[in-house]
Computed example of a mutant assay.
Amino acid sequence: MLHFIAGGVCAAQGFRAGGIHVGVKTHAAWKKDVALIVSDVDCACAAVYTKNAVKAAHIHVDKRHLADGKARAAVINSGNANACAPMGE
């Protein structure tokens, strides 16, 4: 069962967040599809990754960035898994 906490993702002291519509999934400008969550200090962070042999480029980057188990910010998108995206420089 889910319990909503007043303040949402920013309920914990030291966290800020914002969202914006960039058109990842839909042209409906009222639907926010990208979010940024920021911590004032480095904090514990964990991730769950696909077991699929084919991984998008950002998965490899994320694993390197989270190797020490700490992060300061996260960018979250909705509506696009970014799978099989070309790996850039």
Score class of each variant (00 low, 15 high):
1 M>F: 07
2 L>R: 09
3 H>P: 01
3 H>I: 06
4 F>S: 02
4 F>D: 01
5 I>G: 00
5 I>F: 03
6 A>K: 15
7 G>R: 08
9 V>K: 02
9 V>H: 04
9 V>N: 01
10 C>R: 02
10 C>I: 04
12 A>K: 15
13 Q>E: 15
13 Q>W: 01
15 F>D: 00
15 F>G: 01
15 F>H: 00
16 R>A: 14
17 A>W: 09
18 G>Y: 01
18 G>V: 05
20 I>V: 10
20 I>G: 03
22 V>D: 05
22 V>C: 11
22 V>A: 07
24 V>R: 12
24 V>C: 07
25 K>I: 10
26 T>G: 12
27 H>K: 07
29 A>T: 07
31 K>D: 05
33 D>G: 13
34 V>M: 14
35 A>C: 14
35 A>Y: 15
35 A>P: 06
35 A>D: 05
36 L>D: 03
37 I>H: 00
37 I>C: 00
40 D>M: 04
40 D>S: 10
41 V>H: 12
41 V>F: 00
43 C>W: 00
45 C>N: 01
46 A>D: 09
47 A>M: 12
51 K>S: 13
52 N>W: 01
52 N>L: 02
52 N>H: 06
54 V>Q: 07
54 V>D: 11
56 A>P: 15
56 A>D: 12
58 H>S: 12
59 I>K: 04
62 D>A: 15
63 K>F: 00
64 R>Y: 00
65 H>R: 14
71 A>G: 13
71 A>F: 02
73 A>M: 04
73 A>T: 03
75 V>R: 07
76 I>S: 06
79 G>T: 12
81 A>V: 09
82 N>C: 13
83 A>K: 08
83 A>M: 07
86 P>V: 03
87 M>E: 14
88 G>H: 12
89 E>Y: 05
